[in-house]
Design a protein around this nucleic acid. Structure first.
Lengths: 150, 150
DNA sequence: GCATTTTGTTATATGTCATAACAAAAATGG
DNA sequence: CCATTTTTGTTATGACATATAACAAAATGC
């Protein structure tokens, strides 16, 4: 008997949350990352593994701690990621002669090729997903987002 | 002997990833949500529970399926969230007389107060976090992000 | 009236993320 | 030079998010 007034409209039930920039950011990001994951999956990559592989390809010899810091993840969590890249044959762990604790991460030939292929697929994915935005708008978006993170 | 060339520079190791809009989105969003979670935690709320509570406060009588759809989550995962809100005494589950399967979610007086309090804290948090952006820039950011999600 | 769909729910698996602890190696500091 | 501290990679663990499958009860559709 008490369910007569109910909600005014079904669509836009989250309208009250749209006043928060963070909510819109989270929703949009989740849409983008889900699509990116879908693109990477057939290549045996996930977002995290692709990110790590990209850093290693761009900066061969990088240490695991540096890699984790660059990607904003914990050292401990980077181990499994690097394990997967190594087992796939895309990177190699090499002991550094100057510091026998540290490990230098280097891409293999196959790893370099896979990164290039995945990069192109991801760029195409973003072209598709951001079709509603002009190139200038995408730059604006990145510029605005970059002002947030400290 | 093979670790001499190494990486060119330590800072900006993720520079190669910045060409992807999604990467910058993910980094910025993670910074914002982490801070929001920190703000909500002392009030016994998480981002998900606050979002659900807000929808219920704005649309009393909403069904669980509608709530889950509004927040972009699975029905099954919404159960635990609603359980927590109910156990905290912030919402109540009421059987609908028109559809005995469905459940109408309604906020309690305490729940309404808690939502208002958390909303203000979150607005303050965003004011702090987005201090580098003008009000116009924040609107632009939301406008650009809204063009992405389909 | 019977098959199908919807709703809330449970169980489960996977991925993400943070923290604590540890051994080996290096750096530091008398 | 030697003892203490720090760093590096690593393992283990727990909290949380998220996706899927299955199910009973209720509603809906021919």
């Amino acid at each position: 008997m008490n369910d007569l007034p109910d909600s005014p409209f079904a669509a836009g039930l989250d309208a009250g949350l749209r006043e928060f920039v963070g909510y819109t950011m989270k929703r949009a990001t989740s849409a983008v990352t889900a699509d990116a994951a879908r693109v990477l999956e057939p290549m045996g990559l996930r977002i995290t593994t692709f990110s790590a592989l990209s850093v290693i390809c761009h900066s061969p010899g990088v240490r695991q701690t540096e890699l984790a810091a660059a990607l904003g993840m914990e050292r401990s969590n980077s181990v499994a990621v690097i394990d997967k890249l190594e087992k796939a044959g895309w990177i190699a762990r090499e002991r550094k002669s100057t510091d026998r604790r540290a490990i230098a991460l280097r891409p293999t030939t196959v790893g370099l090729a896979r990164q290039k292929q995945a990069r192109l697929a991801l760029l195409a994915h973003e072209d598709r997903l951001f079709a509603g935005l002009t190139a200038a708008e995408r730059r604006d978006l990145v510029k605005l987002l970059s002002k947030i993170e400290v």
